[in-house]
């Protein structure tokens, strides 16, 4: 009996998950459908860009600098064995532009801005602000969800680009300024190996996808949260966990599609 119980529990979880994904997808399409209003009144998006983008700047810049510095240090130690320290720039740049920039920025974004979005919307629901808006004949998806969605989608690639740029600067600081790798080969080899379309554009596409996914998860969890204190805190945790896993899984899928040929 215990086996049957376990199997049916697994089945229940799967059915539940698929159902939630379906609801989230419907929520996503509604958000796109009702986006017209906030794109016409763009200051609504600008207000949200402040709380998602600008407020995430410090964490992104600091994290990017340190990740780049670590890459510089570790990369140098490894490349030294093969006598190709001059390829340090390539390693740091490709690592950041292709993978670490989009992924790390998205993970930080999920825990900084995503969780804040979930908590904010969950609290709006708990304090009946969303019902109030509906009673005022204002569609809450158009007025609350859509501006935050677009702010997330716009700020994510910018944050990822900043992360990569700052990270490359960090790698430069450690590699060239501190260790003394030749500055010319650091930059020229980097430029020769990093392709704009293959590497940088693909990195940007990745970060746009991550931005969309993280924002939709955060907004959906907030909108779907039970209107209680435990409900909101549970939803906030779920936002961070779900979106982190989604980022890493999607990163694998996107990498497999984009860079398999190379």
């Amino acid at each position: 009996m215990a086996v049957v119980k376990t199997i049916s529990a697994i089945g229940h979880r799967i059915v539940d998950t698929v159902w939630r994904i379906g609801v989230a997808a419907r929520f996503f399409f509604l958000t796109l459908l009702y986006s017209g209003n906030c794109l016409r009144r763009f200051h609504l998006v600008i207000k949200e860009l402040f709380s998602t983008g600008v407020m995430s700047l410090i964490i992104i810049i600091v994290a990017g600098l340190f990740v780049g510095m670590v890459l510089g240090l570790q990369g140098y130690e490894t490349l030294k064995r093969y006598g190709s320290e001059s390829a340090l720039g390539v390693m740091v740049a490709l690592g950041l532009v292709r993978e670490l920039g989009p992924v790390m920025a998205a993970l930080l974004f999920a825990s900084r801005a995503g969780s804040a979005m979930t908590a904010e919307i969950g609290l709006m629901k708990a304090t009946e602000q969303i019902s109030a808006m509906e009673m005022m004949a204002v569609n809450p998806i158009a007025r609350i969800v859509a501006p935050r969605f677009w702010a997330g989608v716009i700020s994510m690639p910018l944050l990822a680009a900043l992360f990569s740029a700052v990270g490359i600067f960090g790698g430069y600081l450690v590699g060239v300024v501190q260790i003394g790798v030749d500055e010319g080969s650091f930059w020229s080899q980097m430029q020769a190996a990093v392709d704009f379309r293959e590497d940088i554009m693909n990195g940007i596409i990745k970060s746009v996808v991550f931005g969309t996914v993280v924002t939709v998860i955060a907004l959906f969890e907030g909108f779907d949260a039970p209107p209680t204190a435990e409900g909101v805190s549970g939803a906030t945790t779920r936002t961070v966990v779900t979106s982190s896993l989604a980022i890493l899984m999607l990163d694998f899928v996107l990498t497999a599609i984009m860079f398999r040929g190379a």
């Binding site: 304090t127 009946e128 602000q129 019902s131 109030a132 009673m135 004949a137």
Partner: peptide, 18 residues
């Protein structure tokens, strides 16, 4: 939505937009 524009509702704890 058109009908709701003719109505107003005061929620239990105000439900001001925070």
């Amino acid at each position: 939505y058109l009908m709701r524009r003719k109505m107003g509702m005061l929620f239990q704890f105000g439900a001001l937009f925070t």
